[in-house]
Design a protein around this nucleic acid. Structure first.
Lengths: 342, 342
DNA sequence: CTGTTAGCGCTTTCAT
DNA sequence: ATGAAAGCGCTAACAG
């Protein structure tokens, strides 16, 4: 069952290869008679249409966007925010007939070559770390490319909210009047180790999104009159309620239990809320809590949080990867609910 | 900024094009001296590696799987079950270095041509309707292809649980002792109209998964001594708790409010539960409820449901689309919890 | 409206 | 270990 070629179709139809090609690509330039002869021949031979790889080579375009979803592709579909982001890309790609190729990243050394061997017209990189080698691979492809969140990279657009400003703003709400503030953080590096520490050195943090948020929180606690060295930072390996719940239980059982906790996602905040309640404490009186993203769960739990639209940001990235002009910086706002004090 | 070619690299390195090519594809067949000359030349010229389209054309393989996610690509990322399915595909693709191209389906006439113009080695089709024209397009590509759920199609593998048997089994649980059974259904056709009717004609249903489930429910209600003509079927346009909640409220306010409701997803069942409670009724005493899929929400709400692993099924589909032997039929089971009687 | 020519950039023979 | 030739299947560019 060999592949039928356009040349075979043309021969069978009694026309030149170009007439057959035009039948598929510029039907208006072909007479009705020729066109129907070609289509009839194609049907007889069960020709499925021009070969996509040959067409891409000749045209220099694949009509496909490449998406790099972080160090473990498998996580991509477990994070609701990442899924919203993909939906935003789909909103732009589908109506234009662009496919979305999700590249097989696993965290291994081959990742770079998987980027360079992707047949795509442009790249979208989901937020990663400063030291991620795929950034160089994407740069080297010399195609339109955009990174969401960070790291900011020469030659790539950056689509992101101002995480530092947003963290400062939500931190001002959650940490007001707090004596023992704490942060439940996303990972600091691609090793994804979970730790609990105080006065965490922010400059070492390799995920720029996480770093900027920590910087914003730090500014907020200092504005509230607390030294950064007194702030506990609990780092979770994954964006997941269960882990946040457990680490929060540990914090609350410690010698200086926090009275205000800023989490870096609503999923984590949901775990924080469960742990606080399980400890018999009242939100926000005993412990104020904030999340991030304004997912469904935030409204359900009455969480104060940072609202942003990952879906819109996904769409913005898609436009950029298609080579269109970048939009304005992504917007955010603090949504105040009942999990924080007045 | 033109693309650098392998020929330019070879010339600069002072070797033949083939030596340069081998450097990338069979490094062991090239002397250390030649290899390092080639790599040095590539670095100087910023050659990003062999062009993927040219390579695909020559090799006849793209190392990418095509995924057809239903009539609106945009829905794919809104349905948690579909997302689990994608994660299962990723589990198989990532370690093998295969990319996943999600095809830009929109429900328009161009969908077929978007399938035929996809540069992929195999296809995975997410459950669709008997009359979906993309099935013919996938068949015509003569590549390994698999459909999840249905329709069963000559030339394509089918990966599915036995929906009829599963519906019969869960129906036996939810409808036991019921006098006025009802079904909250997924759409019957790609038009996705929402309707409420009795004695619904099952043979007309174009989504085979939905049809088989309705057939199973019908067998269960008849075994429970109720005529199908007395069963209300409420069809929701989307797989979404809010819509199920609203349509259930309508059913409960009607002249013969149901005392047992089988939903086709846990999301829908969650909406059913909310509507039942809002009406001041008790589960399962006044109304028994079942879901489908055994998602997180099912455990949270104590829902009796049909357990299946979409993630495993996604992985099975990926193996099939890679041309490997098909596995055994997918497994399912009924998980009994507190939303049904005895 | 149709056809001829000339590659797109690469890798599979098959030599040497 | 290296290289020359051939061509994967298609379409831009230009005739006619």
């Amino acid at each position: 069952m060999k592949r039928v070629t356009l040349a075979e179709v043309a021969e069978r139809a009694g026309v030149s290869v170009m007439t057959a090609s035009y039948t598929y690509n510029r039907p208006e330039r072909v007479s009705d008679r020729s066109r129907s002869k070609v289509l009839a021949a194609a049907a007889e031979l069960k020709y499925p249409g021009p070969d996509p790889s040959a067409r891409s080579l000749r045209r220099g375009s694949t009509r496909t966007l490449g998406i790099v979803m972080g160090e473990h592709l498998t996580y991509a579909f477990e994070d609701p925010q990442a899924v919203s982001f993909l939906a935003g890309i789909a909103d732009v790609c589908a109506p234009r007939g662009y496919g979305m190729t999700i590249l097989p990243i696993t965290g291994a050394a081959e990742d770079a070559s998987r980027v360079t061997s992707a047949a795509v017209d442009g790249f979208i990189v989901w937020t990663t770390s400063d030291d991620d080698p795929v950034m160089a691979a994407v740069q080297s492809m010399k195609r339109p490319a955009v990174v969401h969140g960070g790291p900011a990279t020469p030659g790539l657009e950056l689509v992101s909210i101002d995480n530092r400003a947003a963290a400062r703003a939500v931190g001002a709400v959650v940490f007001v009047g707090a004596r023992r503030p704490a942060v439940v953080s996303q990972p600091l590096s691609r090793e994804r180790v979970s730790t609990i520490s105080r006065g965490t050195d922010i400059t070492d943090v390799l995920f720029p999104v996480t770093r900027h948020r920590l910087e914003g929180y730090r500014q907020a606690v200092e504005a509230a009159g607390v030294a950064w060295g007194d702030v506990t930072v609990a780092v979770c390996a994954h964006n997941d309620a269960a882990e946040a719940e457990q680490i929060t239980a540990t914090l609350l059982a410690g010698t200086s239990p926090p009275d205000a906790i800023a989490a870096m996602s609503d999923q984590q905040a949901a775990g924080v809320v469960r742990a606080v309640r399980a400890a018999g404490l009242v939100i926000p009186d005993d412990v104020a809590v904030t999340g991030w993203d304004d997912a469904d769960v935030a409204a359900r739990l009455g969480l104060t949080t940072v609202a942003q639209s990952l879906r819109d940001q996904g769409a913005t990235c898609a436009y950029a990867a298609l080579g269109q002009k970048p939009g304005s910086p992504a917007s955010w706002s603090v949504v105040r609910r009942s999990s924080t004090r007045a």
